[in-house]
Design a protein around this nucleic acid. Structure first.
Lengths: 326, 326
DNA sequence: TTGTATGCGTTATCAG
DNA sequence: CTGATAACGCATACAA
């Protein structure tokens, strides 16, 4: 069933049908006839042919570091929501935290095979910059700030600062930090900076031995908490850079019957949906991930509409969620 | 940069280049020349044009009920792993538990816009059957058994039976069940049946008041546990049909200082990655979700290769994971 | 407002 | 083994 078949059946030219489907520049009379035939036959245009002609796929590639993450699934939900409203679909590429794969997928998308890319990256390196520059389609980053492409990111510094402030207000004086490596600027650098600066502004001691790093998983929290608890001088509060890490910390402390928050307080960032049901429920910061997905998608859509629209960098706020772990 | 450009530069016909790219039926001499030009130019064929010609998109649609689920993300990871190995890509459609949307997406995929569909459904209704029958592309179901399409599902009955047996072995005599509605055959019917039959086989009392249902979320576990604990006669163990539900149950019990498992034991199914870090760690059944994604993808790929290969129904096993909640 | 003709970039056919 | 050439299904410039 092609456009010509429909045209024949409706007694018009293929061009008329095409116009009917697109700009709608057809006389009322023919419009009715065409509409009728299309409805009767259930005709639906070939997307492939359209793509070949228009060079548009109505597909957006979304590159994510892992799929089994609370924050990422919320971002993706936000993107999906926004895209489906305007008939776009979403192609998911899971890199499993592998930078090579990330670059690879970015290249795959090079062949204007998708109309745009949303990159939920853990780092944006020089290599990323190179590849992205070579792409002919717009790219938007979520979660990390970038200067050469539009990005939507979170107030990592502010949230970390605010949480640290809360910790101090509760009377804790020996605060440790479990984070991630510095190649992740948002989490590894900015959150740590918020932590440090808050300590400094409160004229508190900053103990470098109490800053530990690892990966984005519970093991990191578990293992580094163990290290902290085995030190001669132990902290009385642990600020974890992500909720997942905090889950690991809480796990260790519970396992070793160390009372939270009496002996050691724990905080995270992200407000994942499981952190409110653990014992004790975790104090954390909500990041409005769904909204960042929404915004990111809108940004990309704008960029697709008008490729030379200016580069934007939007920062989203946060909200401190106080629970019993602090 | 088109295939003709390459042909011109290599001094051969476009057909030769096409053959080089596909079946490789080219003389050694030209092969070298073509290869050189392609490498030099970084040429990559237009996927759209290929699709128009071959009617194949190398895309697989994956319909999921929700994205922020541990089990589903593991299944998707398994699918993704398998597909990317053979150059296929995956199009994710999130239905957010909306049957209408599920049907809608199924229809979207009708226009051979993807080469196949993997349906991770919570229910397969008559309506599903209708639409799927009308599709010209293969469909594979994961998580639910279906007779008219290939499916890969879990031993829900067996796992539920085995867990119930464990509960009884631990000396619990008053076992409640928190599940989901019956329209989900795998979870709502089979797991409940495993539970019931195990009680019967052990000549234990089955109390219908202790069988409650709700949705696939923590609230279900929380609220129904509350109901159970407010009854005159309370159970001393709760078997939750999913880990997520169990998380809610544990949350309620902890909140009300009801000791697990001394006063009330709790079990789930699924072995989500968070259930081992809650307090106490949850006894559950592992379902090899990643493997089911793997298998499902393989099945679909086979079906795409040979559309008239027989309908398969594969059941995957389970493994009981004993932790402190029982 | 309408229809005709052309081309998008491939792959498949078929004669050489 | 090779190269013209004809589709694939659509959108658009252009002529009417």
């Amino acid at each position: 069933m092609t456009i010509s078949d429909i045209a024949k059946m409706a007694g018009v030219s293929p061009a008329a049908v095409s116009r009917f489907l697109n700009d709608g520049y057809v006389s009322e009379e023919k419009r009715l006839k065409i509409k009728e035939v299309i409805e009767k036959t259930g005709y639906v245009p070939s997307r492939q042919a359209q793509q070949l002609r228009t060079k548009r796929t109505k597909l957006v590639g979304v590159i994510i570091p892992k799929i089994d993450s609370d924050s990422i699934s919320r971002i993706v939900a936000g993107i999906s929501e926004q895209l489906s409203e305007v008939g776009y679909q979403l192609l998911l590429a899971n890199t499993e935290n592998d930078v090579e794969k990330e670059l690879e997928y970015l290249s795959t998308f090079k062949q204007n095979f998708v109309d745009g890319v949303i990159l939920i990256a853990t780092a944006i390196t020089e290599e990323h910059r190179q590849i992205i520059k070579s792409l002919k389609i717009p790219v938007v980053a979520i979660g990390q700030r970038a200067d050469f492409i539009s990005s939507i990111y979170h107030n990592d510094y502010g949230a970390a600062y605010a949480i640290t402030q809360k910790i101090l207000e509760k009377g804790h004086r020996n605060v440790a930090f479990i984070g991630v490596p510095e190649w992740d600027v948002a989490v590894g650098v900015n959150r740590l900076r918020g932590f440090k600066n808050c300590l400094r502004d409160n004229e508190m001691e900053f103990n470098p031995d109490w800053v530990l790093t690892g990966m984005f998983n519970m093991d990191n929290g578990y293992e580094n908490t163990r290290k902290l608890m085995e030190m001669d001088r132990k902290p009385d509060a642990i600020f974890c850079a992500t909720d997942t890490i905090a889950m690991g910390a809480v796990h260790y402390l519970n396992e070793h019957k160390i009372k939270i928050p009496e002996e050691v307080a724990v905080c995270g960032i992200g407000n994942g949906k499981t952190v409110k049901v653990i014992e004790p429920p975790l104090t954390t910061a909500d990041y409005f991930y769904r909204a960042s997905g929404n915004e990111g998608a809108k940004m990309l859509l704008d960029k697709i509409e008008d490729p030379k629209s200016p580069v934007l960098a939007t920062m989203l706020g946060y909200e401190i969620i106080e629970r019993e772990s602090l």
